[in-house]
């Protein structure tokens, strides 16, 4: 009857079968809530984000938080060792996580991590890219799509000029980064499917 919740935002992938579904979910929530709050704090510092309507700020954050977290937590995925570090600091091998039910999402996360790390972005570049990721999140339900698109364009322009300045001979990095956006969207969709399929029994 052993259950698993294979998400590095959890302290451990193993779930105590004695605990109720409610308390498992409460504990998991306590683990990922600080990470979500950090994404909100990050969003607040994106120039122009607070000028969007409150409704659109919330919509973008709802749609884009996971994508931002994927970028931020690629450091938890050790591509060489094929292992993932969970919140407790303990590392679990891909084989171990597979035996706990991890599937395609895990492979896709490693692919994404490997490609992103290969670009060797600096801190400022990564931060600007992450801002682009957030404002490029799914547009459904937005009140003012034009304002979001204007913000997205200005951030993409800033990213392009930063990459051009830092890597004058490697402008392909910029194109590769923009191609990460659809990858993130598909990771987000896979993650949503996992969430919907996850059931905790009382």
């Amino acid at each position: 009857n052993r259950m698993h919740l294979v998400c590095p935002m959890n302290t451990s992938p193993q779930v105590d079968p004695q605990k109720s579904g409610h308390s498992i979910w409460e504990e998991f929530s306590m683990s990922f809530t600080p990470a979500v709050r950090e994404v909100v704090e990050f969003a607040k510092r994106i120039p122009g984000f607070r000028d969007l309507s409150e409704h659109d700020q919330v919509s973008l954050l709802k749609a884009g938080t996971f994508e931002v977290l994927v970028v931020r937590f690629t450091s938890l995925f050790d591509v060489k060792e094929r292992a993932v570090t969970f919140l407790s600091g303990r590392k679990y091998s891909v084989e171990a996580l597979r035996s706990m039910g991890a599937g395609d999402l895990l492979n896709s996360m490693f692919d994404f991590t490997e490609k992103l790390q290969a670009l060797n972005l600096g801190e400022e570049e990564m931060s600007l890219f992450t801002a682009v990721v957030l404002v490029s999140a799914d547009r459904s339900g937005l009140e003012n799509v034009n304002s979001v698109e204007a913000l997205q364009e200005s951030l993409i322009r800033a990213l392009r000029s930063l990459i051009t300045k830092n890597h004058p001979n490697e402008i392909a990095i910029f194109t590769k980064l923009l191609l990460k956006l659809p990858d993130l969207r598909s990771l987000n969709n896979m993650h949503s499917e996992q969430l919907l399929a996850f059931k905790v029994h009382p």
């Binding site: 979500v36 909100v40 607040k44 409150e54 919330v58 709802k62 938080t65």
Partner: peptide
């Protein structure tokens, strides 16, 4: 649950974190 974001209570966390700073903003 039909909406993964609702499943995680994401909207509630986001609204609280956003509003936390709004209260501090001078009008």
């Amino acid at each position: 649950f039909s909406d993964p974001a609702s499943n995680l209570g994401l909207e509630d966390i986001i609204r609280k974190a956003l509003m936390g700073n709004m209260e501090e903003r001078p009008e």
